[in-house]
């Protein structure tokens, strides 16, 4: 599939006025005279409208940025995330790089490919799922990993991945292990363009897990800690002696009372130190 269709060179005007406004907002993030920096986010933007980067999308970016379509196409074809044909509601990416692959990613990809009847970058007939094998997704401690519209589903197996895509095909949206509740591929493309969502549940969605916290949890159990900061006697009045003590012990292990408590005491987590904090940051509040 070619991006630049000689018969049909692409029409920048198929996009609504709102899209042009969004493009202008992207350009405004960069210094004056550096509008071309907006190209990558703008390609995500046109992908969020059409589900892929079409000849129209390329013409639109070229038109807005006043560069040639060849320049835009050269960029659009370089990066893996720009899809060259319509993408399904959900992009299911299976990491098949070495570590995930050996720990089960290869089997997951094979199983899903057979189940869905699609290969690399192909979409199911009902338009629900596009399947791809991905390179390292930077979650090796949670291997093997699958992402749906780039939200993490950690520690998958062939069985759990089949359950995942079955739910997606049935119109349900299972919650990611780490990441916000799922949205559509078009919606997530708009977020990658820098228009991050304002859903409250997205803002508070979990980003942690046993692996992320493995070291800090173990440090608590072992009462391990980093050395405390040196105390700067000459700079502080004696009344803050207690705060100094705590500051010196800034990374000392605290008694964990729940999973959501601070695992480590810091100067600021101490009530005495908190008052200092208030003074320091009165201006900023």
């Amino acid at each position: 599939m070619t991006l630049i269709d000689i018969e049909r060179p692409g029409n920048p005007d198929v996009f609504a006025a709102e899209v042009r406004t969004a493009a202008e907002q992207i350009i405004a993030r960069y210094p004056a005279g550096q509008s071309r920096s907006a190209l990558l986010p703008m390609l995500h933007l046109v992908q969020s409208e059409q589900g892929y980067v079409s000849a129209d999308g390329i013409a639109f970016c070229a038109d807005v940025l006043d560069i040639t379509k060849a320049q835009v196409a050269a960029v659009a074809t370089f990066y893996t995330m720009y899809k060259r044909k319509p993408t399904g509601e959900y992009l299911v990416s299976v990491c098949t790089n070495t570590l995930c692959g050996l720990l089960g990613g290869d089997e997951i990809y094979r199983t899903l490919s057979e189940l869905l009847g699609v290969g690399m970058n192909e979409t199911t007939a009902d338009g629900t799922i596009t399947l791809e094998h991905a390179e390292c997704l930077a979650a090796c401690d949670y291997a093997p990993v699958v992402t749906v519209n780039y939200e993490f589903f950690d520690n998958q197996s062939a069985e759990s991945a089949v359950g995942l895509v079955t739910e997606l095909k049935d119109g349900r949206r299972p919650l990611p292990t780490r990441g916000a509740p799922l949205c559509s591929f078009k919606e997530i493309s708009r977020q990658i363009a820098g228009f991050v969502d304002d859903r409250p549940e997205a803002a508070t969605a979990t980003a942690t897990g046993a692996q992320t916290e493995a070291g800090v949890k173990l440090a608590q159990q072992r009462h391990d800690q980093a050395p405390g900061y040196p105390v700067e006697h000459e700079k502080k009045p004696a009344s803050e002696a207690h705060a100094e003590q705590v500051a010196a012990d800034n990374t000392g292990a605290a008694e964990p009372t729940s999973a959501h408590d601070a695992p480590l005491k810091t100067s600021a987590s101490d009530p005495d130190a908190d008052s200092t904090q208030g003074e320091l940051f009165g201006k900023g509040e």
Partner: peptide, 22 residues
């Protein structure tokens, strides 16, 4: 020993929110 410095906020209450970070 383990020496959590950069990771010391992992697992604390919503460490990504500025109020908690402060």
């Amino acid at each position: 020993p383990l020496t959590p410095v950069l990771t010391k906020r992992f697992g604390t209450n919503a460490p990504w929110q500025i109020e908690n970070y402060l």
